[in-house]
Write a protein that binds this DNA or RNA. Structure first.
Lengths: 106, 106
DNA sequence: TGAATACTGAAGCAACAACTTGACTAACTG
DNA sequence: CAGTTAGTCAAGTTGTTGCTTCAGTATTCA
């Protein structure tokens, strides 16, 4: 299964979704527990979770009436892969000009 | 200057913008040269470039009537930083359950 | 100087994204 | 079984995004 890198980055571009990831990094949570501190409805969280599932950041599983959500590696790995793959390229690029131009572009 | 990580990821969430980055990884280019193979107007590229500048991926400089665009490190570093910072977290998280659950979630 | 080139700015538009409400289903609880 | 709890589905709203066109400005060229 191939992740859509577009959607992976789009997923991370939303603060609520990153907040969900941060929350899940402390351990698995139910949908309503995730919604509680974020000031949005459970429905909204459900929609975000669908995006996060499709992009490989989260795995969810419904047991009884509770859906338990936990982190999944695929999404993170996709980002890391992109970063690693591109680091070489832009570093080479910057090195070419780096000798002459000021490199204080951070 | 502090980059907005929201906008950094949003910037990468667009295929045209990533295409621009790929193009620039081969070397600096003018706005119109960037537009040429992408099937969009120069105006659109200008708008994308503004986003890429604000998010630290690109530096542009106008000489005469030509704007020359080249890669900049800040944006890439921001992504890498996020990836590194979160790798530890989700790896720990996955390790906790990894012993029991199947880890074939890639 | 006049024409072509390279870009910029404002305005508008269609598609999408994040969110809501309200009606619903399913599952525990007393 | 009635009531509460957990989540889902469909639809609608609002704001944003990616793009366009058209009219401009500045620069280079013949």
């Amino acid at each position: 299964m191939e992740l859509d890198i577009d959607r992976v980055f789009q997923a991370l571009g939303d603060p609520t979704r990153r907040a969900i990831l941060n929350r899940l990094s402390l351990g698995p949570q139910s949908v309503s527990k995730l919604a509680e501190p974020l000031g949005v409805t459970v429905t909204a969280i459900g929609q975000h979770l669908q995006v996060l599932e499709e992009t490989g950041f989260v795995h969810t599983e419904k047991t009884g009436r509770v859906r338990s959500c936990r982190l999944q590696s695929a999404g993170f790995k996709a980002v890391e892969h992109w970063a690693v793959e591109h680091r070489a390229t832009w570093e080479r690029r910057l090195d070419v000009l780096g000798g002459l131009l000021s490199e204080d572009d951070g």
